[in-house]
């Protein structure tokens, strides 16, 4: 990497939503959101439950449309390519923009190492094999901070792992296909405090290389891990600012009300 680029701040956005709205049937759950997500930064999306923050996240890698009756309007660009353009394939989009869910979702029929390479296997003949595959498994698991805990039992079933380990395994699985962006949908909501802390440390590691977007209902977590924070209320983007600013000097009274605990 060239030093000037890193110095060049604010960094240019790698993922950008413009006038993005999301619907379930006729009801609009996200309204005209315009927001940038920058490379090598963590952006947190906060807001009371039901405010549309998970839906917004799911629009960013075209997962929203997999639900029956779900539709999207507006644009989302990844490095200035529109992911909703008519020729864009949602499958290709998802391979550049990884996602991890609230509950750990290891594939129960696969071993730990097979789970890590699950996203690569679908490449068919181009899928890495043998030593290459082993290197990828080790690299992704190290990246996810799980390697030391599982290196002796890579062939065992993934459902034998603890909840926190399963979640980090899912992050490793998402990293193995080298995404540009990783979306985390309340990744610690079902974990105990110690496991949550490990995932948070991992988020800090991740932003050294890629853009991270994290949805959370835990304000302290947003304050700890993110560089920027966006506050969403009833599907509207109320405020989007550097995390420090948003938590110390919110511009909008509704943001202030939320972060001081007056509703939500």
């Amino acid at each position: 990497m060239i030093a000037e680029e890193i110095e060049d701040s604010p960094r240019k956005p790698c993922l950008a939503a413009r006038e993005l709205s999301a619907f379930f049937g006729r009801s609009r759950v996200v309204s005209n959101v315009t927001i940038d997500f920058r490379d090598r930064e963590v952006t947190a999306i906060i807001g009371p439950s039901g405010c549309g923050k998970s839906t917004l996240l799911r629009c960013l890698n075209r997962m929203h449309e997999t639900a029956p009756g779900a539709t999207v309007s507006g644009t989302v660009t990844l490095d200035s390519t529109d992911i909703y353009a008519p020729g864009a394939d949602p499958i290709a989009v998802r391979r550049h923009i990884g996602m991890v869910f609230q509950r750990p979702t290891p594939f129960p029929t696969m071993s730990i190492s097979d789970n890590v390479t699950a996203g690569l296997k679908i490449l068919g003949r181009k899928a890495p094999r043998g030593k290459d595959a082993e290197d990828i498994v080790e690299g992704a698991l190290r990246h996810a901070g799980l390697w030391e805990e599982v290196k002796d039992r890579l062939g065992e079933s993934a459902i034998a792992l603890s909840g926190g380990q399963q979640q980090r395994l899912c992050i490793a699985r998402a990293l193995a296909i080298r995404p540009r962006v990783i979306l985390l949908d309340e990744p610690t909501a079902s974990l105990d405090p110690l496991s949550s802390q490990k995932v948070e440390e991992l988020v800090y590691q991740l932003k050294q290389d890629i853009a991270v977007v994290i949805v959370t209902h835990n304000l302290q977590q947003a304050a700890r891990v993110s560089d920027r924070t966006a506050f969403l209320l009833l599907g509207d983007l109320i405020e989007n600012a550097p995390t420090n600013t948003l938590f110390t000097a919110p511009a909008d009274p509704r943001t202030e009300a939320y972060i001081t605990g007056r509703f939500g």
Partner: peptide
């Protein structure tokens, strides 16, 4: 960035 790709 290649986002096009058909899934027959």
């Amino acid at each position: 960035m290649i986002l096009a790709g058909v899934a027959p």
